[in-house]
Nucleic acid binder design. Sequence first.
DNA 1: CCGCAACATTCCCGATTGGTTATATTACCG
DNA 2: CGGTAATATAACCAATCGGGAATGTTGCGG
Lengths: 102, 102
Amino acid sequence: MPSTFEVLAEPRRRQILDVLRTRECSVNDLVALVPVSQPGMSKHLKVLREAGLVQVRQDAQRRLYRLSPEPLAEVHEWLEPYREVWARRLDALERHLDDMPD
Amino acid sequence: MPSTFEVLAEPRRRQILDVLRTRECSVNDLVALVPVSQPGMSKHLKVLREAGLVQVRQDAQRRLYRLSPEPLAEVHEWLEPYREVWARRLDALERHLDDMPD
DNA sequence: CCGCAACATTCCCGATTGGTTATATTACCG
DNA sequence: CGGTAATATAACCAATCGGGAATGTTGCGG
């Protein structure tokens, strides 16, 4: 069972999420927008589903996929201590620049 | 050339970064802390180096690695629009709960 | 300048991954 | 109920990846 990080490693999966972020889509819609075959799209969507990053809703013959962003919180939280590090670095840089006469 | 996302997909590489976040380390230090052989560690460090996530400094025979968090900003920025989505969802949930009589 | 200690590289392996083609499956519509 | 549109699954392939053993490389210390 791949982690959210591994699921996001695939550029096309991120691209799929970028589309679903703005609107619900059928599989065919996504195939038209992302350069991948239909079976390939179904595979990616399965990975995204199992990671909890998308949800499906049936509409006649179509399946409408929509974003389910909760698992992204894990990534956000992993990143948090690093944000502190780079904020500290920016502070130090600013103080250093303030000390420069020119 | 792998993206930051792909580099972070590896659990052990995240583990390495977690260590380097708090202190500068030699390769041997890291081998003692992360379950991987020394050649394996050198490989991971190479990937991290080429991604700009760590920097090296030579100290006698040792090489001291330290975190270089800047590339993580890319991940942070990709995540940003999604934070808005899940913030909206939490707001909606709260409003909904406030509307419930019980 | 020799020998060791610390790392990096090479080589090889099994496993996984992403992709496509071909083939189910499913649900509507006439 | 038969056909078709939409999607999923199966089967297969090439490429990549992570891992370890063996082997280079480099820089110090005596």
